[in-house]
Design a protein around this nucleic acid. Sequence first.
DNA 1: ATAGGGTTACCA
DNA 2: TGGTAACCCTAT
Length: 133
Amino acid sequence: MGAPKQKWTAEEEAALRAGVVKHGAGKWRTILKDPEFSAVLRLRSNVDLKDKWRNMSVTANGWGSREKARIALKKSRQILKHDDNPKVLNTEVEDIDHEIVIAKPPAMSSESLKFTSPKRSISRCNFGSNPVI
DNA sequence: ATAGGGTTACCA
DNA sequence: TGGTAACCCTAT
């Protein structure tokens, strides 16, 4: 009956950040196995790490909040049937910069004396390799 | 084991 | 009452 919800503390967030910066995102199991982080993330699970990282990335981003979650929640607060989506023409690609070097959803404590990246602004080097016409 | 989705609880 | 944070379950 004791389940007062485990609120994440700065220590946990720091360990999570360090783990992702050291090993990389998606390697929760490895991070959790690390004795250094396991000291703090000892009661945490791989799912918890992913959950926190997920919530953090979404909350500290362009989304005023977890709008996606909020919308899905506000929209119908319950999973709708698969409902067939006409799926008109869609030539848009998902893009998405894949992992690697994509860490640090929140802000840094006090470092980065060069890159002043307030958030994650992965400016692509322009892929439209279309040299004139 | 990892990623995604959905649900619940707590706080403002 | 609303929004945010966390936890559990399912699928890949």
